[in-house]
Every structure is written in C-alpha cells, then in structure tokens.
Computed example of a mutant assay.
Amino acid sequence: MEATVNVTCYKSKVLKNGESPLMVRICKNGKKKYKSLGICTLGLQEEPTQAQVSKL
C-alpha cells in the first residue's frame, strides 16, 4: 500500500479576503484526502513568495 503526498493550493476554495488555503493531498488506494496546513496564499500564483504567505 503506497501513498503519495502533495502540497497544493486549493484554488476552488477562496476565502473572503481573496486568499487560497494550502492543503496536503494524500492519495492511498485511489482515495484522496485533503488536510489544511493552516497557511494561505494571496492570488492564484503557482509558487507564492515568502511575502505572500500568511498564517490562519
């Protein structure tokens, strides 16, 4: 049973302040599960800079 873990910007969930949360995606046996990291990014950029990342 091998699992893959990815960190992704959850673009379908945009908060009131325009930020998108960073989520950990865990895939195991064809099932996906998302967990929040408690960090948000401004805008929809692929790679946020240090200044664009904020804690929840």
Score class of each variant (00 low, 15 high):
residue 12 S to W: 15
residue 1 M to C: 01
residue 21 P to G: 05
residue 44 L to Y: 07
residue 45 Q to V: 14
residue 31 K to V: 05
residue 34 Y to W: 12
residue 16 K to G: 06
residue 5 V to R: 11
residue 55 K to S: 12
residue 11 K to M: 14
residue 7 V to D: 06
residue 32 K to Y: 11
residue 13 K to Q: 14
residue 46 E to D: 15
residue 18 G to T: 05
residue 27 C to T: 15
residue 33 K to I: 10
residue 16 K to W: 11
residue 17 N to E: 08
residue 22 L to S: 01
residue 7 V to H: 09
residue 27 C to D: 11
residue 24 V to R: 12
residue 4 T to N: 09
residue 13 K to D: 12
residue 3 A to C: 06
residue 51 A to D: 12
residue 1 M to A: 00
residue 19 E to H: 02
residue 35 K to N: 08
residue 32 K to C: 12
residue 5 V to Q: 10
residue 39 I to Q: 01
residue 5 V to C: 10
residue 51 A to Y: 05
residue 7 V to F: 14
residue 41 T to S: 05
residue 39 I to N: 00
residue 30 G to K: 04
residue 46 E to M: 10
residue 13 K to V: 15
residue 53 V to L: 13
residue 30 G to N: 07
residue 23 M to C: 11
residue 3 A to E: 05
residue 8 T to F: 13
residue 47 E to P: 03
residue 15 L to E: 13
residue 21 P to A: 06
residue 34 Y to P: 08
residue 53 V to G: 02
residue 33 K to R: 13
residue 40 C to P: 00
residue 47 E to Y: 04
residue 33 K to G: 08
residue 18 G to R: 03
residue 48 P to N: 04
residue 40 C to N: 01
residue 38 G to H: 09
residue 50 Q to K: 11
residue 9 C to V: 14
residue 49 T to E: 03
residue 51 A to Q: 10
residue 22 L to P: 02
residue 23 M to P: 05
residue 4 T to H: 09
residue 6 N to Y: 07
residue 8 T to P: 04
residue 56 L to M: 09
residue 21 P to K: 03
residue 2 E to H: 03
residue 23 M to G: 04
residue 5 V to F: 11
residue 33 K to D: 08
residue 5 V to L: 12
residue 51 A to F: 06
residue 10 Y to Q: 11
residue 43 G to Q: 06
residue 26 I to G: 05
residue 40 C to T: 01
residue 50 Q to Y: 05
residue 33 K to F: 08
residue 10 Y to E: 09
residue 14 V to K: 07
residue 36 S to C: 11
residue 53 V to F: 01
residue 34 Y to R: 12
residue 54 S to D: 05
residue 19 E to Y: 00
residue 18 G to W: 03
residue 46 E to C: 10
residue 29 N to V: 03
residue 34 Y to L: 14
residue 41 T to E: 00
residue 49 T to M: 02
residue 46 E to F: 10
residue 10 Y to W: 15
residue 48 P to W: 00
residue 3 A to I: 03
residue 11 K to A: 14
residue 29 N to M: 00
